[in-house]
């Protein structure tokens, strides 16, 4: 927490006020902000972070000050409200362009922004025909193989099968491929946060290949007149294929994929980190796996 006396807050705010006409008003606001700031600091010292946050936010709403927003960020960080903390630290940097601790705060923002979150993958109730068998499937997140088929014991307190996976904050594509079907879903998670990601699928989707992508702006077809196969499970004959990839209206290099048949599924994932307005096929990162099921 920024070491700051309430009196310093008063002085800082008073310094920024215009003279004469509004002379009384700043005193009123400064006094109220100072009281809230002091109450927040006391609550923080006593370990009551919720009250501290509320009082700091009150002080900031009455009379914004860089030290107050910094302390808000600090309390939010300690309360694991990381997304809010990042915004508050950014606000601090915007309010104090020449802050002496800019590099330190920027490093902190970077660290917080990368704090992994948790996706809790589950399916619908057994009464739903489209519920999926989590234990029977390969789980992939953004094309990375996170889990092979195996038992998924019920988790408390919800007493249902859940798979928890730590991921970087942001949007993710979760794919579940079983020997019988294929489920996919986009789920986003905040820094340090938790997010439920519910999967469901038609009970039977046949196919020897699955093509997934980071978003729906990609088309993948087998030939010029083929149907789009992104986020689908499709039947491709055994052998090597080169699929046509289109990024919006721009053609990309072909996607080579090898289908071995039998009890395996060829899986490919298309990712990009480039802005989706570039007037060309963006630089693609392709991940591939051969998902082998027991006979």
């Amino acid at each position: 927490m920024k070491a700051l006396l309430a009196i310093a807050l008063c002085a800082g705010v008073a310094h920024a006020q215009p003279a004469k006409k509004t002379k009384l008003a700043p005193d009123k606001f400064t006094k109220a902000a100072s009281e809230a700031f002091t109450a927040a600091a006391t609550a923080d010292t006593n370990g009551d972070l919720r009250t501290a946050l509320g009082q700091y936010e009150k002080a900031h709403a009455i009379s914004p000050h860089p030290s107050t927003i910094y302390n808000i960020a600090d309390v939010q960080r300690r309360l694991s409200m990381l997304r809010q903390a990042i915004k508050s630290y950014e606000t601090y940097l915007v309010m104090v362009p020449d802050a002496k601790d800019r590099a330190e705060v920027e490093t902190l923002i970077d660290q917080l922004s990368k704090t992994p979150g948790t996706l809790i993958i589950h399916t619908t109730a057994a009464s739903d025909r489209d519920s999926v068998d989590l234990a029977a499937g390969f789980v992939l997140v953004d094309g990375e193989l996170k889990r092979r088929p195996g038992p998924v014991p019920p988790q408390q307190p919800r007493n249902r099968a859940e798979i928890s996976i730590q991921v970087p904050p942001g949007e993710h594509v979760v794919d579940l491929v079983t020997s019988l079907t294929y489920a996919t879903r986009e789920c986003d998670v905040d820094p340090g946060g938790q997010r439920f990601c519910e999967l469901e699928a038609e009970p039977r989707i046949d196919g020897t290949a699955v093509v997934s992508a980071i978003n729906r702006r990609f088309d993948v077809v087998q030939d010029r007149r083929g149907k789009d196969m992104v986020h689908k499970r499709v039947e491709l004959p055994a052998g090597k294929h080169r699929l046509l990839v289109k990024d919006r209206s721009y053609n990309c290099a072909p996607l080579p994929i090898e289908v071995t048949g039998g009890n395996s599924v060829a899986y490919a994932f298309i990712n990009t980190t480039e802005w989706d307005g570039l007037k060309r096929c963006r630089t693609l990162d392709i991940k591939q796996h051969r998902l082998q099921f027991e006979p």
């Binding site: 914004p64 950014e90 915007v94 362009p97 922004s113 942001g170 980190t273």
Partner: peptide, 25 residues
């Protein structure tokens, strides 16, 4: 570049949102 001094609360918030959107891509 950082925000200039003296922005009001709403303008400040818009600047911060811009920085956050930029960093998010």
């Amino acid at each position: 570049k950082p925000a200039p001094a003296g922005l009001d609360a709403d303008t400040l918030a818009a600047f911060v949102d811009a920085v956050i959107e930029d960093k998010a891509g």
